[in-house]
Simulated assay, not measured.
Amino acid sequence: MISVLPERWQSRNLVYRRLLENEITEMQNLYSGSQYISEWDGSELNASQIEHWYYTGDLPPGGVKENYCLFAVRLMDSNELIGIISVYHGYPKNNSAYIAFLYICKDKQGQGFGKESEIQLSDELKKLGYKEIRANVAVKNWPAIRFWINAGFNGVSGIYGDKVHAANTFANLELFKIL
Rank of each mutant, 00 (worst) to 15 (best):
M1R: 11
I2Q: 03
W9N: 03
Q10W: 03
V15L: 12
Y16S: 07
Y16Q: 01
R17H: 12
L19P: 04
L19C: 05
L20R: 13
N22S: 11
E23W: 01
Q28W: 02
Q28N: 06
N29W: 01
S32L: 12
G33R: 03
Q35R: 13
I37V: 11
E39V: 14
W40P: 00
D41E: 07
S43V: 00
E51H: 07
H52L: 11
W53Y: 12
T56F: 06
D58Q: 10
L59M: 06
E66C: 01
E66K: 13
Y68A: 02
L70V: 02
A72V: 08
L75N: 01
M76P: 00
D77E: 15
S78W: 03
N79E: 15
N79I: 01
E80A: 13
I82L: 06
I82M: 05
G83V: 06
S86F: 04
H89K: 03
G90S: 06
G90H: 05
P92K: 09
P92I: 11
S96N: 12
A97S: 07
Y98E: 05
Y98T: 05
I99N: 01
A100H: 07
A100L: 00
A100R: 12
L102G: 01
L102M: 13
L102C: 09
I104N: 01
C105A: 12
C105I: 11
K106A: 14
G110H: 08
G112N: 09
G114C: 09
G114F: 07
I119M: 07
D123L: 14
D123W: 05
E124T: 10
L125Q: 05
L125P: 04
K127G: 03
K127F: 08
K127W: 04
L128E: 08
L128Y: 08
G129E: 09
Y130R: 10
Y130S: 08
K131H: 14
K131G: 14
E132Q: 15
I133V: 12
R134G: 15
R134Q: 14
R134F: 13
A135E: 10
A135R: 01
V139E: 13
V139I: 10
K140F: 02
N141T: 05
N141L: 04
W142G: 12
I145L: 15
R146N: 14
W148N: 00
A151E: 15
G152I: 09
F153N: 04
N154C: 11
V156I: 15
V156F: 10
I159F: 06
Y160I: 09
G161E: 08
D162A: 14
K163W: 08
K163T: 14
K163M: 13
A166Y: 09
N168R: 06
F170C: 00
A171Y: 00
L173F: 15
E174H: 06
E174K: 10
F176P: 00
K177N: 08
I178M: 12
I178P: 02
L179R: 04
